[in-house]
Every structure is written in structure tokens, then in C-alpha cells.
Amino acid sequence: MKKELICIVCPVGCHLTVDEALNVSGNRCKRGIPYAKKEMTNPERQITSTVRIHSEVFNRLSVKTSAPIPKAKRFDIMRALDEIDLTPPVETGDVIIENVAGTDADIVASRRIEK
């Protein structure tokens, strides 16, 4: 059976078709192929969110997963973020949580907050 998917790797949003043998068509670039295969077997997503920080300007520090994580772990990660309470300075890319929710991915800062 063929399955229709929309590639979300980039904003173009190609309509992909995947057959049982995991042959992919409809992709406008090669990044669509691994995406479709992954989506059929173990869908992954990037998570972006914020954590508490005591800064003069911001109440939240924006963070992201360092790599895509299994879709099923999304809410486990959100719970882990609730535990965080930071004080500046934080640099872009600083690791905030290592190996978050057992995913092998880290939570890293996506911005700098100096004070």
C-alpha cells in the first residue's frame, strides 16, 4: 500500500509518496528520502521551548533539542524543561540538559542572555 506524506524538512512542503519497499517519490531534493523513511518507521521531531531564567530583560530562555527526538517523547521532554531554573549568563549552544528523557539528544540554549 502506498502512503502519502508531506515532507516537513524545509518550508517547500513536498507531497511525498512512499510504497511498501520504502521507495520515495515526489521529493524535490534528496533530504525528502530519509525523512519519508524515518516517518514510516520511527517519526522524529525537533522540540523548541523555553525554560525559566532570572534575567533583567527576559523571563524565559529559548531552548531546542540538539537533534530530532522520537515524536512519542515530546511531552516527557516538556516535563523535564519545567524543572529548570537558570541565572545568566547563558551562551547560545550551552547544554541545559544532557541526554534529555533518555533520547541521546541534549537541550541547548538557542540564544545568549548576558544578564
Binding site: C10, T48, S62, S110
Partner: peptide
């Protein structure tokens, strides 16, 4: 704070703050 920025200009996908 989401992803989707910079693919044209920086040739990589960044979050807004990045």
C-alpha cells in the same frame, strides 16, 4: 523560538533567536 529561519540566507535551518 521555533525552527524555520535562515535556509536561504545562512543555508542552514535555525530558530528565530539563533
Amino acid at each position: 523560538i521555533h525552527h524555520g529561519f535562515g535556509l536561504h540566507h545562512y543555508k542552514e535551518e535555525l530558530t528565530g533567536p539563533e
